[in-house]
Design a protein around this nucleic acid. Structure first.
Lengths: 254, 254
DNA sequence: TAGTGGTCTAGACCACGGC
DNA sequence: CCGTGGTCTAGACCACTAC
């Protein structure tokens, strides 16, 4: 056994393959969650942390920059670094699929497939996915349920060209993103999203078990892989009664 | 005159006070916008850029990390750094006020004040702003116009306790955020936002010149300063016909 | 003046991918 | 193998704030 003054302050593991700055980041997060830092008092200075952990200043800074960016800490030159007093730690820039999002909130996601197959894209989809006149898309239309309550209707379109191999053994219940990473090594994806409001059509109202013309969200999402090629177009309708969007925004420097 | 192979490649200004990594970032952005980099070919390596600009590797990395984070570039270990092929460069995590947002989109924002004064907060506002039984709020209700078309109705509530000094010479047309930075040195602010949909009430429909029960966005925003103290509660109704939300989301690592 | 965070250097070693 | 980006060091100087 090795003696320690503070039992929690274990040394960093330099052999684990986990970068030191990530280990420091995780440790700081744990200390923040445990209430170890007071709300108006500065954290130990970067110099102190670096010395106590036996790393260089840059490494501590790298850890702190990430926590700064998600709003957990804020630093003031000449004063110190403080906890922000704001609860959540989620990174709202990350796309989450319906499945991931629902599980993250502690509910059970299920789906009912309404239609699935190759077909001619609508003009909007054709343009969004940058398709030629004769290119087809796989179209998957599903009702999404949270704890067996219908939340929304999603219609995904994917170019057949790109995904003919993918679709052979693709289970619609699986995550498309994980499949893309596994089969194609895609590491990076950007989704542009447009959110509008409208009234439910008769069909939508029936599928979602809401009144016709009820207010609903319309989402249009186009996802691009790293070289800018669009790979997915999703049009969704979500019930306004049962769905809302929660967001966190930052403001820095005047 | 100094000879240069490429006239655009001016040396960095080390006396300007602008950090070198920001100068490099801006230069890379300009090069990307000018189409100087090809869509499937790697950028010059970090080592090359560092050498050509006469800075160290860390400085170039710091510039590139920021561009990575807003999705302009992506880097692959062992391969190189590439432009992402995605057009926009905005940082969607930044809160923008209605005024800033409208100007950024090239339109002219105007407002009509409906009511302004100290009053008893509603229970929701009282809870959100963490107020006592007898605390009052300044309440400012405005119709917001873009190029003279009514877009939405905003109702801001600010604790009188905190802002009695602020309000003496506060022009509702000014930015609250700039005022906070100037008077209180607030450098950091987080806004939690909830977006819902609903139908316009008769009064809202009248003010916005839309049909009653038209679908509208409901925004509820609570802003916190750096120590976690809530300072502003805003409830807004925006026309679904005239307003939409555009977002960009990222997905990295499986 | 002393301490803080912000920037920057000139190296080092590593993991990874392509050749 | 070499070149790439990712990590890390041990310093340096600066700008800022508080005392």
């Amino acid at each position: 056994m090795i003696e320690k003054r503070k039992p929690l302050n274990l040394p960093l593991d330099r052999r684990s393959g986990v970068p030191l700055h990530l280990q420091i980041q995780q440790r700081l997060l744990a200390q923040i969650r445990s209430g170890e830092f007071m709300l108006g008092k500065p954290l130990p200075s970067i110099q102190q942390i670096a010395a106590s952990m036996g790393v260089s200043l840059m490494t501590v800074r790298q850890a702190m920059r990430a926590l700064n960016e998600i709003g957990v800490l804020y630093s003031r030159q000449g004063v110190g670094t403080f906890i922000s007093g704001i609860k959540m730690e989620r990174d709202f820039r990350q796309v989450l699929s319906f499945t991931e999002e629902t599980i993250a909130r502690g509910s059970t996601p299920t789906s009912k497939v309404i239609s699935f197959g190759a077909q001619q894209p609508t003009p909007n989809v054709q343009e969004a996915l940058n398709l030629g006149e004769k290119d087809l898309v796989y179209s998957l239309r599903r009702v999404r349920y949270r704890d067996d309550v219908p939340l929304g209707i999603e219609c995904s379109s994917l170019p057949v060209q790109l995904f003919s191999g993918l679709m052979e053994d693709f289970d619609p219940a699986d995550s498309l993103y994980i499949e893309l990473a596994r089969k194609y090594g895609v590491q990076f994806m950007v989704t542009d999203e447009v959110i509008e409001v409208g009234g439910a059509t008769a069909e939508e109202a029936h599928l979602l078990d809401i009144a016709p013309h009820s207010p609903v969200f319309h989402f249009t999402r186009i996802s691009y892989i790293e070289n800018g090629v669009p790979v997915e177009h999703v049009k969704s309708v979500y019930s306004g009664e049962r769905y809302k969007i929660v967001n966190r925004l930052m403001r820095t420097k005047h």
